[in-house]
Amino acid sequence: MKSLKYISIIVLLLTLMFSCKREDPIVDIPVKYGNIGFQFANNVDGQALRVDTLVYTNAAGNNYMVNEVQYFVSDIVLQNSNGTFVSFGTGSELHYMDSDLPETSNWSVADKIPVGSYTSISFTFGLNEVRNISNVFLNPPESNMWWPLFLGGGYHYMKLNGKWIDTASNLSAFNFHLGIGQTYAHDVIVVDSITGFVQNYFTVTLPNSAFTIREDKTTNVEIVMNIEKWFEGPNVWDFNVCSATMQNQSAMQQVVENGGTVFSVGTIQ
Protein backbone atom coordinates (compact mmCIF):
# COMPACT_ATOMS: atom_id res chain seq x y z
CA MET A 1 0.00 0.00 0.00
CA LYS A 2 2.73 2.35 1.04
CA SER A 3 4.87 1.40 -1.95
CA LEU A 4 1.92 2.10 -4.23
CA LYS A 5 1.75 5.55 -2.77
CA TYR A 6 5.40 6.13 -3.56
CA ILE A 7 4.99 4.74 -7.07
CA SER A 8 2.04 7.06 -7.56
CA ILE A 9 4.10 10.03 -6.48
CA ILE A 10 6.99 9.05 -8.75
CA VAL A 11 4.65 8.59 -11.72
CA LEU A 12 3.05 11.92 -11.00
CA LEU A 13 6.43 13.62 -10.81
CA LEU A 14 7.61 11.95 -14.04
CA THR A 15 4.41 13.00 -15.75
CA LEU A 16 4.94 16.56 -14.69
CA MET A 17 8.61 16.48 -15.74
CA PHE A 18 7.99 15.13 -19.20
CA SER A 19 4.73 16.78 -20.06
CA CYS A 20 4.98 19.25 -22.92
CA LYS A 21 3.51 22.29 -21.30
CA ARG A 22 5.64 23.88 -18.69
CA GLU A 23 3.62 25.35 -15.91
CA ASP A 24 4.31 29.05 -15.86
CA PRO A 25 5.11 30.33 -12.42
CA ILE A 26 2.38 32.49 -11.09
CA VAL A 27 3.63 36.06 -11.23
CA ASP A 28 1.95 39.39 -11.14
CA ILE A 29 1.89 40.25 -14.81
CA PRO A 30 -0.07 43.05 -16.44
CA VAL A 31 -2.83 41.70 -18.53
CA LYS A 32 -3.12 44.51 -21.04
CA TYR A 33 -0.72 45.07 -23.89
CA GLY A 34 -0.32 47.30 -26.89
CA ASN A 35 2.28 47.63 -29.61
CA ILE A 36 4.95 50.05 -30.63
CA GLY A 37 6.32 50.93 -34.05
CA PHE A 38 9.09 53.26 -35.11
CA GLN A 39 9.40 55.37 -38.22
CA PHE A 40 12.90 56.54 -39.04
CA ALA A 41 13.18 59.89 -40.78
CA ASN A 42 16.33 61.60 -42.03
CA ASN A 43 16.12 65.36 -41.97
CA VAL A 44 18.38 68.26 -42.76
CA ASP A 45 17.50 71.69 -41.41
CA GLY A 46 14.05 70.51 -40.38
CA GLN A 47 13.10 69.16 -43.79
CA ALA A 48 13.17 65.62 -45.19
CA LEU A 49 16.57 64.77 -46.63
CA ARG A 50 16.93 65.39 -50.37
CA VAL A 51 19.61 62.94 -51.42
CA ASP A 52 22.05 63.61 -54.26
CA THR A 53 21.30 67.33 -54.15
CA LEU A 54 23.96 69.92 -53.41
CA VAL A 55 21.78 72.22 -51.36
CA TYR A 56 23.08 72.05 -47.79
CA THR A 57 25.62 74.09 -45.89
CA ASN A 58 27.11 72.79 -42.68
CA ALA A 59 28.28 74.74 -39.63
CA ALA A 60 31.78 74.98 -41.08
CA GLY A 61 30.38 76.53 -44.25
CA ASN A 62 30.90 73.48 -46.44
CA ASN A 63 28.42 73.24 -49.28
CA TYR A 64 27.46 69.54 -49.22
CA MET A 65 25.11 66.82 -50.40
CA VAL A 66 24.19 63.47 -48.91
CA ASN A 67 24.07 60.45 -51.20
CA GLU A 68 23.04 57.82 -48.67
CA VAL A 69 22.84 57.16 -44.96
CA GLN A 70 22.75 53.73 -43.37
CA TYR A 71 22.88 52.89 -39.69
CA PHE A 72 22.03 50.52 -36.86
CA VAL A 73 20.10 51.31 -33.71
CA SER A 74 19.95 48.62 -31.06
CA ASP A 75 18.84 47.78 -27.54
CA ILE A 76 15.93 50.17 -27.35
CA VAL A 77 14.75 50.75 -23.79
CA LEU A 78 11.40 52.26 -22.88
CA GLN A 79 11.12 53.81 -19.42
CA ASN A 80 7.71 53.38 -17.87
CA SER A 81 6.40 56.16 -15.61
CA ASN A 82 6.22 53.55 -12.82
CA GLY A 83 10.00 53.35 -12.92
CA THR A 84 10.29 50.03 -14.75
CA PHE A 85 12.07 49.54 -18.04
CA VAL A 86 10.92 47.61 -21.09
CA SER A 87 13.38 46.20 -23.58
CA PHE A 88 12.65 44.03 -26.60
CA GLY A 89 13.20 40.32 -26.97
CA THR A 90 14.89 38.08 -29.50
CA GLY A 91 14.42 39.29 -33.05
CA SER A 92 13.84 42.88 -32.00
CA GLU A 93 17.27 43.65 -30.56
CA LEU A 94 18.22 46.02 -33.34
CA HIS A 95 17.08 47.75 -36.49
CA TYR A 96 18.91 48.60 -39.71
CA MET A 97 17.96 51.80 -41.48
CA ASP A 98 18.99 52.47 -45.09
CA SER A 99 18.01 55.57 -47.05
CA ASP A 100 18.23 53.51 -50.25
CA LEU A 101 15.69 50.99 -48.92
CA PRO A 102 12.44 52.78 -48.02
CA GLU A 103 11.06 49.67 -46.34
CA THR A 104 13.71 50.01 -43.62
CA SER A 105 12.11 53.30 -42.49
CA ASN A 106 9.40 51.38 -40.70
CA TRP A 107 9.94 49.04 -37.84
CA SER A 108 6.93 47.33 -36.28
CA VAL A 109 8.26 45.80 -33.10
CA ALA A 110 6.93 42.29 -32.57
CA ASP A 111 7.04 42.50 -28.78
CA LYS A 112 3.89 43.27 -26.86
CA ILE A 113 4.34 46.36 -24.72
CA PRO A 114 2.51 46.72 -21.38
CA VAL A 115 -0.04 49.50 -21.49
CA GLY A 116 0.72 52.67 -19.62
CA SER A 117 2.53 55.94 -19.88
CA TYR A 118 6.22 55.99 -20.67
CA THR A 119 8.58 58.82 -19.94
CA SER A 120 11.42 58.26 -22.38
CA ILE A 121 13.00 56.17 -25.12
CA SER A 122 16.69 55.39 -25.27
CA PHE A 123 18.80 53.22 -27.56
CA THR A 124 22.32 52.35 -28.53
CA PHE A 125 23.53 54.08 -31.66
CA GLY A 126 25.45 51.33 -33.40
CA LEU A 127 26.04 47.93 -31.84
CA ASN A 128 27.60 47.11 -28.50
CA GLU A 129 30.48 44.63 -28.21
CA VAL A 130 28.11 41.74 -27.54
CA ARG A 131 26.16 42.34 -30.74
CA ASN A 132 28.95 43.64 -32.95
CA ILE A 133 30.49 40.34 -33.98
CA SER A 134 31.82 39.71 -37.50
CA ASN A 135 29.63 37.55 -39.72
CA VAL A 136 26.54 37.66 -37.50
CA PHE A 137 24.79 39.13 -40.53
CA LEU A 138 25.35 36.78 -43.45
CA ASN A 139 22.84 38.38 -45.80
CA PRO A 140 22.48 41.81 -47.36
CA PRO A 141 21.66 44.56 -46.74
CA GLU A 142 23.06 44.28 -43.20
CA SER A 143 26.09 42.24 -44.34
CA ASN A 144 27.14 45.13 -46.57
CA MET A 145 27.75 47.12 -43.39
CA TRP A 146 30.63 44.80 -42.41
CA TRP A 147 33.70 46.36 -40.80
CA PRO A 148 37.01 44.59 -41.49
CA LEU A 149 38.29 42.29 -38.76
CA PHE A 150 41.65 43.98 -39.14
CA LEU A 151 40.02 47.25 -38.02
CA GLY A 152 38.17 45.65 -35.11
CA GLY A 153 35.51 43.66 -36.95
CA GLY A 154 31.75 43.67 -36.70
CA TYR A 155 29.82 46.27 -38.65
CA HIS A 156 29.74 49.94 -39.52
CA TYR A 157 27.41 51.56 -37.00
CA MET A 158 26.81 54.14 -39.70
CA LYS A 159 27.75 55.00 -43.24
CA LEU A 160 26.93 58.57 -44.19
CA ASN A 161 28.25 59.18 -47.69
CA GLY A 162 28.15 62.39 -49.63
CA LYS A 163 30.10 65.10 -51.40
CA TRP A 164 31.09 68.67 -50.74
CA ILE A 165 32.75 71.54 -52.58
CA ASP A 166 36.32 71.49 -51.34
CA THR A 167 38.68 74.46 -51.00
CA ALA A 168 39.86 73.93 -54.58
CA SER A 169 36.21 74.19 -55.68
CA ASN A 170 36.11 70.51 -56.63
CA LEU A 171 33.24 68.21 -55.79
CA SER A 172 34.93 65.81 -53.39
CA ALA A 173 33.53 62.82 -51.54
CA PHE A 174 33.17 62.27 -47.82
CA ASN A 175 32.72 58.93 -46.05
CA PHE A 176 31.46 59.81 -42.58
CA HIS A 177 31.61 56.32 -41.10
CA LEU A 178 31.44 55.12 -37.52
CA GLY A 179 32.39 51.76 -36.05
CA ILE A 180 35.11 50.27 -33.89
CA GLY A 181 38.14 52.55 -33.64
CA GLN A 182 41.78 51.59 -33.51
CA THR A 183 44.96 52.74 -31.84
CA TYR A 184 48.05 52.57 -34.01
CA ALA A 185 51.70 51.95 -33.26
CA HIS A 186 52.84 53.97 -36.27
CA ASP A 187 51.53 55.73 -39.35
CA VAL A 188 52.27 53.04 -41.92
CA ILE A 189 49.36 50.65 -42.10
CA VAL A 190 50.72 47.12 -42.18
CA VAL A 191 49.68 43.87 -40.52
CA ASP A 192 51.05 44.74 -37.07
CA SER A 193 50.22 48.45 -36.95
CA ILE A 194 47.19 48.21 -34.68
CA THR A 195 47.73 48.01 -30.94
CA GLY A 196 44.17 48.24 -29.67
CA PHE A 197 40.51 48.85 -30.40
CA VAL A 198 37.97 51.37 -29.15
CA GLN A 199 34.22 50.80 -28.87
CA ASN A 200 32.49 53.86 -30.30
CA TYR A 201 28.82 52.97 -29.82
CA PHE A 202 26.92 55.35 -27.60
CA THR A 203 23.58 55.64 -25.83
CA VAL A 204 21.00 58.10 -27.06
CA THR A 205 18.14 59.17 -24.82
CA LEU A 206 15.59 60.90 -26.99
CA PRO A 207 14.47 64.23 -25.54
CA ASN A 208 10.71 64.76 -25.15
CA SER A 209 10.02 61.13 -25.89
CA ALA A 210 7.12 60.49 -23.51
CA PHE A 211 4.36 58.39 -25.02
CA THR A 212 1.48 56.14 -24.08
CA ILE A 213 0.74 52.53 -24.93
CA ARG A 214 -2.95 51.72 -25.18
CA GLU A 215 -4.52 48.31 -25.11
CA ASP A 216 -4.43 46.58 -28.52
CA LYS A 217 -3.34 49.80 -30.19
CA THR A 218 -0.05 50.56 -31.88
CA THR A 219 1.77 53.70 -30.85
CA ASN A 220 3.98 54.97 -33.67
CA VAL A 221 7.03 56.99 -32.74
CA GLU A 222 8.97 58.87 -35.37
CA ILE A 223 12.71 58.91 -34.71
CA VAL A 224 14.41 61.72 -36.61
CA MET A 225 18.10 61.86 -37.49
CA ASN A 226 18.92 65.52 -37.94
CA ILE A 227 21.89 65.06 -40.23
CA GLU A 228 23.23 68.60 -39.93
CA LYS A 229 23.77 67.98 -36.21
CA TRP A 230 26.54 65.49 -36.98
CA PHE A 231 28.53 68.45 -38.29
CA GLU A 232 27.39 71.14 -35.86
CA GLY A 233 28.78 70.65 -32.40
CA PRO A 234 30.36 70.45 -29.99
CA ASN A 235 32.85 69.78 -32.79
CA VAL A 236 32.31 71.88 -35.91
CA TRP A 237 33.00 69.47 -38.73
CA ASP A 238 34.92 70.70 -41.76
CA PHE A 239 35.17 68.14 -44.56
CA ASN A 240 38.32 69.87 -45.73
CA VAL A 241 39.93 68.75 -42.47
CA CYS A 242 38.51 65.22 -42.36
CA SER A 243 36.52 63.51 -45.08
CA ALA A 244 37.10 59.84 -44.17
CA THR A 245 36.87 58.63 -40.59
CA MET A 246 37.28 54.86 -40.46
CA GLN A 247 40.89 54.71 -39.36
CA ASN A 248 40.94 58.00 -37.49
CA GLN A 249 39.88 57.41 -33.89
CA SER A 250 40.18 61.05 -32.86
CA ALA A 251 37.80 61.94 -35.69
CA MET A 252 35.42 59.13 -34.71
CA GLN A 253 35.54 60.34 -31.11
CA GLN A 254 34.34 63.72 -32.37
CA VAL A 255 31.59 62.00 -34.33
CA VAL A 256 30.50 60.27 -31.12
CA GLU A 257 30.51 63.58 -29.24
CA ASN A 258 28.42 65.23 -31.94
CA GLY A 259 26.03 62.28 -31.97
CA GLY A 260 24.40 63.24 -28.68
CA THR A 261 22.09 65.81 -30.26
CA VAL A 262 21.49 64.18 -33.63
CA PHE A 263 18.30 62.33 -32.79
CA SER A 264 14.95 63.72 -31.82
CA VAL A 265 11.36 62.54 -31.73
CA GLY A 266 9.02 63.65 -34.49
CA THR A 267 5.39 62.74 -34.41
CA ILE A 268 3.92 60.27 -31.93
CA GLN A 269 0.57 58.82 -32.83
Partner: peptide, 12 residues
Protein backbone atom coordinates in the same frame (compact mmCIF):
# COMPACT_ATOMS: atom_id res chain seq x y z
CA UNK B 1 48.79 39.51 -45.79
CA UNK B 2 49.97 43.05 -46.52
CA UNK B 3 47.84 43.07 -49.64
CA UNK B 4 44.81 42.01 -47.62
CA UNK B 5 45.44 44.85 -45.17
CA UNK B 6 45.57 47.30 -48.09
CA UNK B 7 42.37 45.78 -49.50
CA UNK B 8 40.38 46.29 -46.27
CA UNK B 9 41.67 49.66 -45.10
CA UNK B 10 40.25 53.04 -46.00
CA UNK B 11 43.70 54.59 -45.80
CA UNK B 12 45.08 51.73 -47.88
Amino acid sequence: ANGFVLFVTEQG
